[in-house]
């Protein structure tokens, strides 16, 4: 490689390195905003904002879903296996919503520490399999 090309190569390396460092610093400073949701443990630790809407994410606790008979209002508990938080929501739930499923709710804490959600989204995992395989996997896990 002649010196001209070496110089150009060096310039490119410096350019990419410079942009990487700038991006890293920018992302560091925005880190909190990039956190899409808080876990129930974060909320219990007081990390969640109190003055504006935020999201809580976790699993819907088994047997915690209570539906109101006469309205679309429902309550359930969200857990991250360490802490749990009660969520209240009025509206239609996404198809994937079920007990044990990961969900993300956007809303605010009320005075009683109940999370009043305006929106509930379901989060799914990265596993894809036919129902029979899922069933046999479940059976297998239970047997162990």
């Amino acid at each position: 490689m002649n010196t001209k090309r070496k110089k150009r190569l060096l310039a490119i390396v410096l350019l990419v390195a410079g942009v990487s460092i700038a991006a890293y610093l920018a992302l560091q400073s925005f880190n909190e905003n990039l956190m899409y949701f808080y876990s129930p443990s974060d909320i219990k630790a007081g990390k969640a904002p109190t003055n504006h809407l935020f999201r809580v994410g976790g699993l819907v606790e088994k047997n915690s879903l209570i539906r109101q008979e006469d309205s679309l209002m429902l309550e359930f508990r969200v857990t991250d296996q360490a802490e749990t938080i009660g969520v209240q929501y009025t509206g239609i739930l996404p198809d994937l919503f079920r007990e044990g499923q990961g969900i993300i709710a956007r809303g605010k804490l009320n005075k009683n520490g109940l999370f009043v959600a305006e929106e509930v989204l379901a989060k799914h995992d990265e596993n894809y399999m036919p129902p029979e395989v899922a069933d046999s996997l479940k059976m297998h896990n239970k047997a162990q």
Binding site: F37, K123, Y128
Partner: peptide, 24 residues
Amino acid sequence: VWWNTLHQGATVTKLDKPSIHIDM
């Protein structure tokens, strides 16, 4: 990986075996 997201993690390109059934 770096942040909490609504989008799930990688399925095929993770280092251990892909978490998707072979027929899929």
